[in-house]
């Protein structure tokens, strides 16, 4: 049987032939991740923007802002709206029309982290308890698996790149300065590292063909000091303790590379 046909008809057997020897069909080792690159500031019309490429997976994010009057005396979480669009452009599996479920999942994942990570005081304005409310619009340009990592990374990179204008109040009213100098401060930074479990073997940064074979997916969040900041695993097969500890060790190993991409 020809190789391509075999891959198509028996994807699991095809993958296992490689994974038994400790490598993957695309040439990576089981613990190797794809080349990840972060670029910031390519969209002139957004207040901040970033593009992340993990292998072929490409995400683009832009920040826009408006002024709001938050209710409540002290704001604990930064007011940030997140919108993730998975258009049919990025993969044939998304159809035109209704927003796919995955995009809501990614939206929530990003929102719950960035709201907590961004310092709300850095968005406060000096007058009348007003505040900047940011909205992050994330567009997928290509979907080749491991969207969780790419989405959170692109959101953080875009927030780091965001420069807000100052608002000056005068007798005629308020006006916005043309120069943008104000940065968005973080309490801390975290990076996500995702794993797929295929036949109880852990693979780092699974691509779309591997994701289709995964029994479960684990995402581990690591901070700059290399400590463990969270774990997310929704459904899938039961994962043993050993497997999770292997994952967290690998995540701590990979984190510095991602932080260096974010800080550039």
């Amino acid at each position: 049987m020809e190789v391509k046909v075999f891959e198509r008809v028996h994807p699991r057997e095809y993958f296992n032939l490689f994974s038994e020897k400790g490598i993957r069909p695309d040439g990576r080792s089981l613990t190797g991740s794809r080349k990840t690159a972060v670029r910031v500031g390519s969209i002139r019309t957004a207040l901040g923007s970033a593009m992340v490429k993990c292998g072929s997976t490409t995400m683009l994010c832009g920040t826009t802002a408006k002024v709001i009057n938050p209710t409540g005396a002290k704001v604990e979480f930064a007011p940030i709206d997140v919108n993730v669009e998975l258009l049919p452009l990025c993969s044939a599996k998304y159809r035109p029309g209704r927003k796919p479920e995955e995009s809501y999942h990614l939206q929530e994942l990003v929102a719950q982290h960035v709201r907590r990570l961004v310092q709300p005081s850095s968005l406060e304005l000096e007058f009348e308890d007003m505040m900047w409310s940011l909205s992050l619009d994330i567009y997928c340009l290509e979907d080749d698996g491991n969207m969780d990592d790419a989405t959170l990374l692109v959101a953080m990179a875009a927030l780091k790149d965001t420069r807000l204008p100052e608002i000056l109040s005068s007798e005629e009213g308020y006006h916005v300065t043309k120069s943008r100098t104000r940065t968005v401060d973080f309490r801390e930074l975290i990076v996500p590292v995702s794993f797929g479990v295929v036949d109880s073997r852990v693979v780092v940064d699974p691509d779309s063909s591997e994701e289709a074979l995964c029994e479960s997916k684990v995402t581990i969040f690591v901070d700059e000091k290399g400590s463990f900041r969270g774990l997310s695993k929704s459904g899938g097969s039961v994962t043993s303790k050993d497997l999770l500890s292997t994952c967290s060790k690998l995540a701590v190993q990979r984190a510095p590379a991602l932080f260096s991409q974010l800080s550039n």
């Binding site: 969209i43 002139r44 019309t45 957004a46 923007s49 683009l60 832009g62 920040t63 826009t64 919108n83 669009e85 258009l87 049919p88 452009l89 035109p96 909205s135 619009d137 567009y139």
Partner: peptide, 10 residues
């Protein structure tokens, strides 16, 4: 044909 625009397109 489907055309979409980003929210931050300007």
């Amino acid at each position: 044909c489907y055309i979409s625009r980003t929210k931050f397109c300007g």
